[in-house]
Design a binder for these strands. Sequence first.
DNA 1: ATCCTCCCCTAC
DNA 2: TAAGGTAGGGGAGGAT
Length: 904
Amino acid sequence: MSRKPRKNEEDNGFAAWGGYMEAKKAKLAEQFSKVTVGLTNKKSDIFNGIAILVNGYTKPGADELKIFMAAHGGNYHLYQNQGGCPTTHIIATNLPNTKINQLGNVPVVSPEWIVDSISANKLLDFKKYLLYTNHSRTQPKLNFPAMGKDKNAVPSPEQPQKYAKTATDPQFLSDFYNNSRLHLISTLGAEFKQLVNKLREESNSQFPGLDKLIQSKSDAGITTETPLKSEKIIMHIDMDCFFVSVGLRNRPELRGKPIAVTHSKSGKSNPNGSNRQAEVDLYMKRLPSGVIPKLDLIDETSSMAEIASCSYEARRCGVRNGMFMGSALKICPDLVPIPYDFEGYKQVSSILYHTIAEYTLDIEAVSCDEMYVDVTKILKKSGITVVEWASHIRHEIMERTGCPCSTGFGANRLQARLATKKAKPNGQYYLEPEEVDNYMYDLPLEDLPGVGYATIIKLHNLGLKTCGDLYDISLSTLKNELGQKNSEMIYDQARGIDKKSLNYEHERKSVSADVNYGIRFKNHSEALVFLESLSNEVYNRLSEIKMKAKTITLKLLTRAEGAPKETAKYLGCGVCDAINKSITTSYYLENPQHIFKEAKNLYERLSIIPEDLRGVGIQLSKLEKIAKTNKALAKFLNQPSNVGSNLTDRNESFDNSIGGIQDNNVKISHNKNTNFTTMEKTVTQDIKSSSKQDKVTGTVSKRGRSRGNMNTLKATSNLTNYFKHTKNESATKEFKSGNNSIDLNVLKELPKDIQKEIMEEYNLFDTAFDKLENKTASDNTNEKQNLTTKDNKNNENQELKKKGFASLSKEELKILLKNWIRNQEIPKDRDVDMLGTFFTNLVQERKLEYLFSMVNLLYRHISTKNCQWHDAYYKLLNHFQEAMLLTYGNTLLVPKGFFCGQHN
DNA sequence: ATCCTCCCCTAC
DNA sequence: TAAGGTAGGGGAGGAT
Ligand SMILES: Nc1ccn([C@H]2C[C@H](O)[C@@H](COP(=O)(O)OP(=O)(O)OP(=O)(O)O)O2)c(=O)n1
Ligand SMILES: [Mg+2]
Ligand SMILES: [Mg+2]
């Protein structure tokens, strides 16, 4: 009797067709393009005396290797020579045993030997690139120790491990990602979503493609305009068997054949003949009942490389994307494997997106080969029909990419998507409104997007097979099985309804990096080394999108109880349990050290057995944009200045702390003469290249030069000076040259175009600046803060309500705070966020005095013994400082009464 | 009622 | 041999 699967059991990823491929890598291709540049002439003689024969598919290909040899003094043989000028090396990436038997004692070497030698500009020892360690005709052995079996095998110095095999190899992460198709499609998907955002942002609303279309239509003298059949017409467009089509562009001889893009070349695997049955049995046992197993066609030697994409000829015999090559060959023995071409996919995707973008930017990117487009405007403006448009755009894409695509049209995204499915391959279909009901009635439920294998089992359990079957069932029955939202979605979908509109502006909510392949560790320290490189990886992705995070999740896969240590799939994860753990930090995760520190912590708390690890992932969520740095201010901070010089020499300085919390980015000083305090926060420059933070202001102030010099005054203790300062033409000039800090009051007096530039950088033009125009900056010019008038208070409450925290007046807030403090309550995150938003508001409205009294109140509290508010307080200060920075630039004038030094 | 966390599910 | 990633919607159930 099979037990009920636990929730967190990894089903081995095989339950749904996963899909994968073959071929050498993008990295190599890159190397290749580097070394081929300008290779028409002889470059060197490094291959003098070497004669190669290329056997089978290699990367670089035979043609390229031929050019390399010619350019670097070597010989290239078409057939193996024995005497005279004998063939010295066979170049191959993979050779079946039978082939090796015929080769005699000529070493079989990987093509990387050639490429690397050229890169190094000397002949490298080929032994390091041998495909096999010996030439035994019967037992070819891979040039690296088999994992698990020869645990103690150390790569010999003669033949160091060339390929990053498991995650203990420092090269592993990049090798893996360079060869992972799923990583590629995820990355490309994100890139194209980003591209649409960017194109929309930068758009001048000119659409050359559309203009041409309108022109040609009017040239043809056709003016009749049939009204559209629905308010909107949505197009869904998707490349046909994308990876295959790209691969066939330069393999015309393979057209019409069953093709699969996969890493597998021979269709075989498991050279050691290890037993796979145990894993297959366990996998079957753990399958939820009703799931069709995907391992049933696998025997001891069939390839478990996944098929990323297969041609429609292959689909005719039941092959699907994501199938194992071995299984596919069982049902389609003629299936031809072709290698991946990562660069090609990227190029074709790019052309696809840029082509559509010549007509409209009402695009929702779905993936590298697929998008939704609102074509209503195109059809209306050009006056062409859906069919004419479809033919036009499909033809253009075919012309530009050499790859076929299909398009579907409908009144909503669901209808468009279903239409595409019907149109494929290489077709187009408009699911017209009057046809929808009929079309849906017989449609199998699994054809609805979002209905996968788990959902279809539930639906089948309810006796439901087609969309029509859903017409007889109540929504509440459905809800019992599927839950609220899912039920509503399917209920609507079955009737052809889709309320979701296209989302053109994509916003990232999480960033992650996962590796569930090649994970084999002997001990914790190996695991932690890998975790650190994964932390760096995920940090790089975070910083690329200029964000910081508050939550980190460690995602581990561990070998399931009873699962064999040696997985059926080479270096796969086998049958696993999933363990995840997350933490929401009190500070922002914004450098690799933060991430690794927390990841390590989570790892240690999970107390797993390192040998049983099969997968590791890090996910970051609760993302926020890193505050933009103002270029003028960044420039200012980058050069020596005399910020605060007239203060620090003769006044007390409160080094690097506000409210007693150490922050190396913040410099605070107090001028006793004027009773104003200056707080400066340095801006971190170029986070990526260096984690070292620039502390210009902190060091410069010690120089004490230019004391009292009005023209070089950057930060002053007196607001009146600011105004004087900016009425001065030379000061304006100085600011222009990036040599000055800026206050909104100063900004107001600068030429409009400069104002605009600065404000746009801050992204505050519409908000803070307008506010400044309309209101007077009373709060911080007048030390006696007016208590809120009734009107103000109403406005404020309105604002607060908009931000989601009810009508909390300042007085009420004060009481709340006092109560917390009196009751020794620790504020919850949501409270802190609320306060933070409130603080930000106050800063933007320049209600500083009030704000400072709040901060001081808080500070006095955390200074008390046993107070547990530190996390909350630190978090608040982050809000507060960020708002300050945004509103005031790097320099802040603080009125009398703000306590910012050490409390005693 | 709404929010938070830990999952599960789906899609490419 | 093989490269089983990644983002987002949403549900269950406990906390607030
Ligand atoms: N399990 C999968 C599914 C897809 N892909 C990759 C290869 C596909 O070519 C590409 C696009 O996915 P599609 O779902 O659009 O499938 P195809 O384009 O291959 O075929 P179709 O004609 O059905 O769109 O994504 C993959 O690697 N593994
Ligand atoms: Mg496709
Ligand atoms: Mg697609």
